[in-house]
């Protein structure tokens, strides 16, 4: 099956290590990706829905125009924002028609409502299958203690789960499929604080410190997240958050494709683990000793 691939802005901007990791992993797994290059930022929950809904309708229409109905993202925020927009557009044909007419018609586009937005994480569990993933694992991450961190938008609101409550456990399922060990903690489904980095930095940093600190105290050696925005805060903000709290944390934060990539046999260099703010050396070393 072919997927329309929506990489999002951050995977090549603030987290430039994510995009190549995702592409490598998809290639190894044999996911047929057709990247959408001529589409816009989905708004990330910042832009008002008045603007972002038409932009996203356009993205979906572009996918349809290429004969694709499955759209893959590698970002929880992209998934949530585009998924939410898609829900509105699908549920209210009149609304979709109005957007088609007002915004898309002059580009000779129209969104028919056939697209499904799927995070790589969902796609792996629901379409690809964990058994196939296990079969592709070259280097089981035996003994590596990993805490999951989802990012709000692939858990909430309810509608995003599309009637599949198990989506709230997929990260753990993937971590285990890769041979690693899950270090569970209460903050895994909570907010990373990134959305208020601008409006209220102290709150944002306090959230980073609380979640990374909790996972670390439960024994995690690293954290994995399917959301690069969470990554920006949990990794990039971690030193400052630790300083504001007056403690050391030093918990490496991995992108989901990086963790998968390690298990598929890619090297730390190939997955750009050195581009992180919190040093990932110990994780890389531990993994390199595995066979």
């Amino acid at each position: 099956m072919s997927y329309a691939f929506y990489p999002g802005c951050v995977s090549r901007g603030g987290c430039p290590e994510l995009y190549p990791s995702a592409v490598k992993v998809a290639g190894r797994l044999g996911l047929g990706l057709e990247e959408l290059t001529d589409v816009g930022c989905n708004g990330a929950g910042v832009l008002s829905r008045a603007v972002s809904d038409p932009i996203n309708a356009r993205t979906f229409a572009k996918a349809e125009a290429r004969g694709l109905t499955q759209l893959m993202t590698i970002c929880s925020t992209c998934t949530g924002v585009m998924g939410g927009a898609n829900l509105r557009l699908k549920e209210a044909p009149a609304y979709r028609e109005r957007i088609n007419r007002e915004f898309l018609a002059e580009e000779r586009l129209a969104y028919q409502g056939s697209v499904d937005v799927k995070h790589l994480l969902w796609l792996l569990v629901e379409d690809y299958g964990l058994d196939r993933l296990r079969a592709e694992v070259r280097r089981p991450l035996k003994g590596l203690r990993v805490s999951p961190f989802y990012g709000c938008y692939i858990r909430r609101p309810d509608g995003i789960l599309e009637g599949k409550p198990a989506r709230k456990r997929y990260l753990e399922m993937v971590i285990e499929a890769l041979g690693a060990e899950v270090t569970d903690f209460g903050g895994k489904g909570k907010c990373c604080g990134f959305p208020v980095l601008t409006a209220n930095e102290p709150n944002s940093m306090a959230m980073v410190a609380a979640h990374t600190g909790e996972a670390k105290s439960k024994g995690a050696e690293c954290m994995v997240t399917p959301c690069p925005l969470c990554h920006l805060n949990l990794d990039g903000g971690q030193p400052r958050a630790a300083k504001m709290k007056g403690t050391a944390i030093d918990l490496p934060i991995l992108h989901l494709p990086q963790l998968i990539g390690l298990a598929l046999g890619f090297s730390a260099e190939e997955l750009h683990l050195k581009r992180h703010i919190v040093p990932t050396r110990q994780v890389a070393e531990k993994v390199s000793l595995l066979t």
Partner: peptide, 30 residues
């Protein structure tokens, strides 16, 4: 720290996406 690891993109240097003019038109209309 971000700059050293290539995580802070240099401002104003990023390229226009193909089709960017259509995105601009959406903003204008709204």
């Amino acid at each position: 720290r971000a700059l050293r690891r290539g995580k802070l993109p240099v401002p104003y240097l990023h390229r226009k996406r193909p089709g960017a003019e259509w995105i601009r038109r959406i903003f204008d209309k709204v």
